[in-house]
Nucleic acid binder design. Structure first.
Lengths: 134, 134
DNA sequence: GTACGTAGTACCCAAAAGGATACTGTAAAA
DNA sequence: TTTTACAGTATCCTTTTGGGTACTACGTAC
């Protein structure tokens, strides 16, 4: 739950930024939304796209997204169970936001060769393009 | 530090979104960036804009932003001390992201009248049609 | 008859994030 | 002379977050 963060939103201007961040908060929400933007996925399909997430965590994040109304959860009463996650229309309105986040990440964030660290394109800001080609 | 989050970024596609989020993480970074986007501020000026933040927290968040290279810190060796915080050119590249976050927050997030809760515009989406067309 | 895939829960624990409070030193103002 | 403003640190404590492991039920495939 992100209520602690939410609680103080009204205390300052600039809050729309924090307000949005409140809903994107949690280690996996970003990726989940990113993937669901491209289409409905079943629980384990999603899980396979996020090799590092545990079942518990995925469930938790999905529940939070569902509670926010950004993602819908449809249970088909069959056996074996079939549960589908999809963006709601409201969730879809986040598309420009997700795209902006993805674009900036693409341009300015590097995973170091070892893949264990993040780096920003810090040197004086030559073109983002150069950063990408490199 | 957001390294735990960073550590797994390379483990999945969609990571540019998470990567960006990594740098925006922390309860106050969003607002701080929002305010600094509009101009340089001294420590206590910033503090007055964020009535709810403690000194310790503000310092911490600013240090992290500085370490990321998004914000610069300039100390004038006078007494009483004068320290100015400003966006770096790299930080400025976040402007579209911050704007996207702010726009979505403005359109879809409400603080309840009592100001203690966040709500999303959930009812079927009468809101900004333009956002949907995009 | 055993294992597999489905979509989860329950329980416990470690780490990280956030917060409260008190303290620093100097100079100018009241 | 006491207070105020400045920009922080240091210490301790609580809350939140995230993760590990084990467990469920059901039906099908081997």
């Amino acid at each position: 739950m992100s209520l602690p963060r939410a609680k103080l939103v009204k205390n300052f201007p600039g809050c729309p930024v924090e307000a949005t961040l409140t809903y994107l908060d949690g280690k996996w929400k970003g990726v989940i939304l990113f993937h669901l933007m491209e289409g409905t996925l079943r629980f384990n399909e999603l899980r396979r796209k996020l090799p590092a997430v545990t079942q518990r965590m995925l469930t938790k994040q999905l529940r939070e997204l569902e509670e926010s109304g950004l993602v819908s959860r449809t249970v088909y009463p069959v056996v074996p169970p079939r549960v589908e996650y999809a963006m709601t229309p409201l969730g879809m309105t986040l598309k420009p936001v997700i795209q902006a986040l993805a674009a900036w990440g693409d341009d300015y964030v590097f995973c170091s060769p070892e893949g264990r660290e993040l780096r920003l394109a810090s040197d004086g800001l030559r073109a983002p393009v150069a950063a990408l080609e490199a």
